[in-house]
Amino acid sequence: MEVPSFTQTQLDVAEIKNGYLKILDQLQQKIKTSTDDKDPKSIDDIAKLTGYTKKTLYGYCQKNTIPHYKKNGRLFFFKSEIVAWIQQGKQKTINEIESENDEFFDAKNKRLK
């Protein structure tokens, strides 16, 4: 068994250190993201997230269309709820609609037989 050179050992340690730093960075991002979802957001933050104007967001709040909280006259939002609200508006693709139609008519034909 050959003993690695000092230079090779240094390179190996540097590679391990870089891997460790990448993992540490990913963990910190994950912690920041999970903490971010628990912190209430302002209407300005939600305007940046959604691309809607503040006026539009106020209108959605007034109509109770968008999930929000009101405390002492101020509006608060949670990012996870806003993302879920956006996802509720998913439009089906033509393939999804055709597939649903096929399933519906197949089921209907089975009942008629």
Rank of each mutant, 00 (worst) to 15 (best):
E2Y: 05
E2W: 03
V3P: 01
V3N: 04
P4F: 08
P4G: 00
F6W: 03
F6D: 06
T7W: 04
T7P: 00
Q8Y: 05
V13Q: 09
A14D: 06
A14M: 13
E15P: 00
E15V: 06
I16H: 12
Y20K: 07
L21D: 13
I23C: 07
I23F: 07
I23G: 04
I23M: 10
L24N: 04
Q26T: 09
Q26P: 00
Q26E: 12
Q26G: 07
Q26A: 11
L27E: 10
Q28F: 10
Q28H: 06
Q29Y: 02
Q29E: 09
K32Q: 10
T33N: 05
T33M: 04
T33A: 11
S34Q: 14
S34A: 06
S34H: 11
S34W: 05
T35N: 15
K38Y: 10
D39N: 09
D39F: 08
P40Y: 15
P40S: 12
S42K: 07
I43E: 06
D44R: 12
D44T: 13
D44Y: 14
I46C: 08
A47G: 08
A47T: 07
K48T: 11
K48G: 09
L49R: 02
L49F: 07
G51L: 06
Y52F: 13
T53K: 09
T53Y: 01
T53A: 03
K54W: 06
K55L: 02
T56C: 02
L57E: 00
Y58P: 00
Y58I: 01
G59T: 03
G59Q: 04
Y60L: 09
C61P: 03
C61N: 00
C61K: 00
K63W: 00
N64E: 04
P67F: 03
P67T: 05
H68E: 02
H68C: 06
Y69S: 10
K70L: 10
N72F: 06
G73A: 08
L75M: 05
L75R: 13
F76S: 11
F77S: 03
F78T: 02
K79G: 03
K79N: 07
S80I: 11
S80C: 07
I82P: 01
I82W: 00
V83G: 03
V83I: 15
A84W: 03
A84S: 13
A84I: 04
W85R: 10
W85D: 01
W85I: 06
I86D: 06
I86P: 01
I86V: 11
I86R: 14
Q87K: 15
Q87Y: 11
Q88I: 02
Q88T: 14
Q88P: 08
K90C: 05
K90N: 11
K92H: 13
K92N: 08
T93I: 12
T93S: 15
T93G: 09
I94C: 05
E96H: 09
E96L: 08
E96C: 05
I97P: 02
E98Q: 14
E98H: 07
S99L: 15
S99A: 12
E100D: 15
N101E: 13
N101C: 11
N101L: 15
D102W: 13
D102F: 14
D102Y: 13
F105A: 04
F105W: 15
F105K: 07
A107S: 15
A107K: 15
K108A: 14
K108M: 13
R111L: 15
L112G: 07
K113H: 12
